[in-house]
Amino acid sequence: MNRIVSGLFRVSIVLVMAFITLPLIVVMAASLSPSSQVTLVPWEWTVRWYGDLVARRWIDPFILSAQIAVLVSLISGVLGLLAAYVVAFEKCPGHAAIMSFLLSPLAVPQIVKGVAIVLFLSSAGLYRWVGTPGLVAAHIILTLPFAVRMIATAMFNFDRNLDRAGQSLGATKAQRIRHLLIPIIKPGVFSGMTFAFIISFNNIPLSVFLVRPGQTTLPITVINYLEYSLDPVLAAVNVASLLFVLAVIFVFEKIGGFSAQIHGGSK
């Protein structure tokens, strides 16, 4: 009996893992398959769909998405740093209330935030902001809570005694910030910025309200295209943008070194 149960348990895990990986494998296979029909084992394969990516139709949205994601990531990092600094280090009244205000956008579904922002821009006569400025602002509202939380966590973990030790050894405030605070909170800041980048780059529910012709992000371009065609070039677009995201994570990790923080160890 016990053997049957553990057998079933193993089978269920394998099945769930297959469920999780199946669509990813299918997209990768589709991006290499010569016909638009995807077969389990593609007997022939081609990279011509990747060649088709070098068209303005895909390059322009990609550049826009990347630009927005970089801006969103940088601004979330700076604003998150400012907010987290006050919440974590300053002994000021009401810092729980400040934190819940900063995290409040998390309680609202993205689609609702999107409607609210587009209605606001239209009624306030700021309709020309629809497009890049609106996209950046809306994405920051979405990513800022994550950045604040990650950076504040890093700051809460900062051992005050280190600072006291530095001080008693005669380090100036600037020296303590440069040699103690920055190295310790850097992984938190970079993980917040990476998170912001990924969320912004892949975002749909907010972007869908704020794109305009000629200023359409990559995921929205793909969705619009999907409505009338399952063209394998879409598979290539998706795989390429996944590779781009992985490369960005790799670069951020090299600079920020946050994987040590995630695994709970130290480098």
């Binding site: 700076v78 604003l79 907010a83 002994k91 400040i98 922002i117 602002a137 920051i140 800022l144």
Partner: peptide, 24 residues
């Protein structure tokens, strides 16, 4: 002065989140 760094993030949240939500 301790609250000053909070100004930029709060203004952004106010303009692009709190006010739009209230308006909606």
């Amino acid at each position: 002065r301790q609250y000053v760094p909070l100004l930029p993030p709060s203004i952004l949240l106010l303009v692009f989140f709190a006010i739009p939500m209230g308006m909606m």
